[in-house]
Design a protein around this nucleic acid. Sequence first.
DNA 1: AATGAGAATGATAATCATTATCATAATAAT
DNA 2: ATTATTATGATAATGATTATCATTCTCATT
Lengths: 147, 147
Amino acid sequence: MNEIERFEAYLRAKHQKMTQPRRIILEAFLSTEGHLTAEAILLEAKKIDPGIGQATVFRTIRLIENAGLAREALQADGARTFEHLADHPHHDHLRCVECGKVIEFLNPSIEREQKKIFTQYSFEPRGHTMELLGLCPECQAKKRGEY
Amino acid sequence: MNEIERFEAYLRAKHQKMTQPRRIILEAFLSTEGHLTAEAILLEAKKIDPGIGQATVFRTIRLIENAGLAREALQADGARTFEHLADHPHHDHLRCVECGKVIEFLNPSIEREQKKIFTQYSFEPRGHTMELLGLCPECQAKKRGEY
DNA sequence: AATGAGAATGATAATCATTATCATAATAAT
DNA sequence: ATTATTATGATAATGATTATCATTCTCATT
Ligand SMILES: [Mn+2]
Ligand SMILES: [Mn+2]
Ligand SMILES: [Zn+2]
Ligand SMILES: [Zn+2]
């Protein structure tokens, strides 16, 4: 079952409707990689149909998220960003505080410890966010005056 | 050196001034525990001096943060929250997605692995955020119908 | 203690991302 | 095809944070 089909199944289960705008927004979103802002998704969707409204993008992103096809990536400054999960297993982020570069990684040992913490406090796991913040090698060089 | 003195030293180093509002806001902030929103800090500060303006609270929080006396706690919904670091070593958070309850913890093994990741990618560490999200025991009980 | 340049304050307006509203249009079950 | 229901998009509203700016406060210097 592909992403579109999964989205349709989700909507059916919720007695909601699959529509042209929703299909277009999902396609636009899936067509890109990385962390997208609602505005970026709107721009991409408008390439397919210029009539798409941004309210619909906000609404549809939430649907896609609830359908389990996307997750919110830790928001940088102003706007929230989202990343889709197609062919993209769980990972966390290492971000450069200077240039914003993002490296995705997965550390099994950390994931294991996190599970232990849920167990220790009898919490039912629902997810986690983790972002490591640092200065990337390039920005370190710039700081040193190597232009 | 206590918190107020550290704040004064920070301001002096930056050629900025210690003022009555700044002192009051810092005191109000320090007088509480937990994760405070700017508005909550304003309310606390107004108990000391009702004339304090909320713009000054926003400005002063940022100063306090840059002085290394506070950090932003992962924002829940709308408003950012801050927690002071006095007598409060580094920790991460386990939050209930239902009732918002927060448990603070520190896992040395995770901290160690995070350092390794910085090293692996040659990033100069600047910090990290981590929040585990789950359902607390009480909210699990409620979900089961035990009211 | 008085001065004065620079910095800070607080009231208010401005931003900007996200939500709410609502009249109109699209969807899907019958 | 009918129709009850839901979705859309334009627009206004919201709410947290920032910017503006005339007035007031600080503090190094006299
Ligand atoms: Mn990612
Ligand atoms: Mn905390
Ligand atoms: Zn960088
Ligand atoms: Zn709970």
